[in-house]
């Protein structure tokens, strides 16, 4: 059967039946080969469940709410897919998300036009990623610790800069703000665009292949001449730039800039989305589509619990249990799926 699996993929038009119930069997087989299978199933399950449980779930207003909520989780998750594929982790992406509007505000209050202030804030965000990357690869400190420390540094910066007081987002009118966050689907479309870009980068370009190689077998990648350190630094830059951008877009959407809490509450859902989606924490395997589905799963969960009116005290407990269920299903289905893949 193992050989048949391989040739089936290459010549799908080949009509020779290869197993019990041929067509149905092969459909199952094809489905089982997808790493994103679990997350598709659990996401469908929660969507159907909340759809039935509350009639408000499938209204346009609610779908917009879900999408606006999950856009930032999704974008951070896409970045984390790159980082996790490398075998690294970035805990500072949430803090970058929260601090980039403050960078922008800082530049704006010092007289920069709003457009340029946004660009400058993006550069700062990318710079944070570069610092994460450079400390990780050149000073050989675990990225977990480096980015955790940077997370606190940025949180501190936000508290100092804001005095823990929320400010209004400058420049809230015109086409500009509609494209950059205010439009109902704006952040969702931005997230979708970033999904496409990062997917193409990871799966269709030389750089993406080198990301997978670096995370899959660091020695082999370095041996073959891939500049693994440079690859890593670039990934840290990409996740920070993406998180910074969606942070600013969200600030424009909300209309105010908040001091927020420690960025961990923002970055961890992103990591969960990536991992629930099928990206390995150990490196070498990343799926952007899975991360998007993982973000939808978390978004629907959060929104659904609100809709059906789960007691706030029970909220985290329920969310935690659902994440556990998704991950256990992931590994258990993975064992079954491997039999189909070989």
């Amino acid at each position: 059967m193992a050989r048949a699996t391989a040739s089936d993929n290459e010549t799908p038009q080949n009509p020779v039946p290869k197993g019990p119930g041929s067509v149905a069997y092969r459909l199952v087989q094809r489905a089982m080969q997808q790493r994103e299978l679990t997350v598709v199933l659990v996401t469908l399950f929660v969507i159907i469940y909340f759809g039935i449980a509350n009639s408000a779930f499938f209204t346009t207003a609610n779908i917009i709410t879900v999408c606006q909520y999950l856009a930032s989780i999704a974008v951070i998750a896409f970045g984390e897919v790159l980082i996790l594929s490398l075998g690294e982790i970035d805990l500072s992406a949430g803090a970058v998300y929260l601090s980039s509007p403050w960078f922008m505000y800082l530049f704006w209050t010092h007289g920069m036009p709003i457009g340029w202030a946004i660009v400058a804030a993006m550069v700062c965000s990318a710079g944070v990623g570069m610092i994460n990357g450079l400390i990780t690869v050149w000073l050989n400190v675990s990225s977990l610790i480096v980015t955790l420390a940077v997370n606190y540094v940025l949180f501190g910066f936000v508290l100092i800069e804001s005095n823990d007081i929320q400010v209004d987002m400058p420049g809230q009118t015109g086409h500009f703000s509609i494209i950059f966050g205010v439009g109902a689907w704006s952040t969702t479309l931005w997230a979708a665009a970033m999904m496409l870009a990062i997917w193409a980068l990871l799966k269709r370009t030389r750089f993406g292949l080198h990301v997978t190689a670096t995370g899959g077998n660091l020695l082999a990648a370095a041996e073959s001449g891939i500049r693994v350190r440079r690859v890593k630094v670039w990934c840290f830059i990409i996740i920070s730039a993406a998180s910074g951008l969606i942070g600013i877009l969200d600030a424009i959407r909300i209309g105010s800039i908040n001091p927020g809490s420690s960025g961990l509450d923002t970055v961890l859902p992103g990591i969960v989305a990536a991992v629930v989606g099928g990206t390995a924490l150990t490196g070498g395997r990343g799926t952007i589509v899975g991360a998007a589905l993982g973000a939808i799963f978390l978004g629907v969960l959060e929104d659904g619990f609100n809709l059906i009116g789960v007691n706030a005290n029970w909220f985290y407990l329920a969310e935690g249990v659902m994440i556990l269920v998704a991950m256990v299903a992931n590994t258990q289905l993975g064992t079954v799926a491997r039999r189909f893949r070989r």
Binding site: R206, L209, G216, N217, A220, A221, R285
Partner: peptide, 29 residues
């Protein structure tokens, strides 16, 4: 065991860091 990346395909491993790309710098595989 050091030479290959387990998660990449045979073809991808054979061309590791010697990939054939389109559009030059972009590095589209």
């Amino acid at each position: 065991d050091l030479a290959l990346v387990p998660q990449l395909t045979v073809a991808q491993n054979l061309f590791l860091n010697r990939e054939i790309t389109l559009f030059g710098k972009v590095g589209w595989l």
